[in-house]
Write a protein that binds this DNA or RNA. Structure first.
Length: 280
DNA sequence: AATGTAGTCAACCGCAGGCAT
DNA sequence: CATGCCTGCGGTTGACTACAT
């Protein structure tokens, strides 16, 4: 796997650049096995690898990580990507966290090649439109809850716990929703465990619904938790009918999480499923 | 069969945020 | 509090591959 004549085999400031060789990969993998991820800048010192920490991290994250899911993006994943992109924009790493085994780089590339210049498929457009509508409804619901929460905060504290927002938070609503979006971990993990293993047909509409349930329940659950509306057992409630109803698939409520985790390859790929879940 | 074009993938760069000193 | 280092993220680029003409 020697690098091509292009930018490969370059050396700048003592650092090798360009395509990685199998020997380099092996050194890096061994290093991570022994020392774990992180401390990338020490890799070169400890292994003799003439790669910058940045390069090592990138290689590991995008290519060598054992829990990576190889193969094409599935329609389900595509649907999720579109909808999460509608929610978060170009926050590829955030989107990637919702797609076990997929890297931000992969998703970014996929988006660029499929949606950036070309026209999205009808299914994609439909999913996006529905999602935006759903999101709008959630915003309304959230505002109502927030109104109640403000009163509560004023009674309890000074209300100083609000997460710090940034400029690009503007189009995403309040910090509460940000929290729900950015940190789905415990809820999602519990939900994945709570929901059974169900299998469904490759119906794209259903996948849209799955993707919706995939996101909205977490947001809603955390939102409601944040507002003190839901007491405990939030994970279970994530399988509620927040989005499903719109698709007329209320009876699928309990299946959504299971369906998600049964996406092509995730379960089939043996340990990938477990790995995927631990990613959360 | 040769050539052109589009798609895909891997890797780099610059920037920003977090953390330790 | 200021500074420097490390890590992570998003954007971009270049090479390779597949497909169409």
């Amino acid at each position: 796997m020697e690098g091509p004549l292009g930018w490969g085999r370059q050396e700048v400031d003592g650092w090798r650049k360009g395509p990685w060789t199998s020997q380099e990969d092996k050194l890096l993998v061994d290093h991570v096995r022994q020392h774990g991820e992180g401390r990338w800048n020490s890799v070169s010192k400890l292994t003799g690898l003439k790669r910058s920490g940045k390069s090592c991290r990138l290689r590991w994250v995008n290519y060598l990580r054992p829990d990576l899911k190889r193969g094409k993006i599935t329609p389900q994943e595509e649907s999720i990507i579109v909808q999460l992109h509608a929610l978060w924009g170009n926050r590829w790493s955030t989107i990637a966290r919702s797609l076990p085994g997929r890297t931000d780089n992969e998703i970014k590339n996929y988006w660029r090649t499929h949606f950036k210049k070309g026209k999205p498929s009808k299914n994609i457009e439909r999913a996006r439109a529905r999602f935006l509508k759903q999101r709008q409804e959630m915003q309304t619901q959230k505002q109502q809850l927030m109104a109640g929460q403000v009163v509560k905060d004023e009674n309890e504290d000074g209300g100083g716990a609000r997460a710090s927002g940034t400029a690009d938070d503007d189009d995403r609503g309040s910090a509460i929703v940000d929290e729900a979006c950015a940190a789905p971990a415990p809820v999602a993990e519990a939900a994945a465990a709570a929901c059974g293993q169900h299998h469904h047909e490759e119906d794209l509409i259903m996948h849209d619904a799955i993707a919706m349930d995939f996101m909205c329940p977490m947001s809603c659950a955390l939102l409601l938790h944040g507002a003190g509306v839901v007491q405990g057992g939030g994970a279970g409630s994530c399988c509620g009918s927040t989005a499903s109803d719109e698709y007329g698939s209320g009876e699928e409520d309990g299946a959504t999480w299971g369906s998600l985790w049964n996406l092509d390859g995730v379960v089939v790929d043996g340990g990938a499923a477990a790995g995927a879940c631990t990613l959360w």
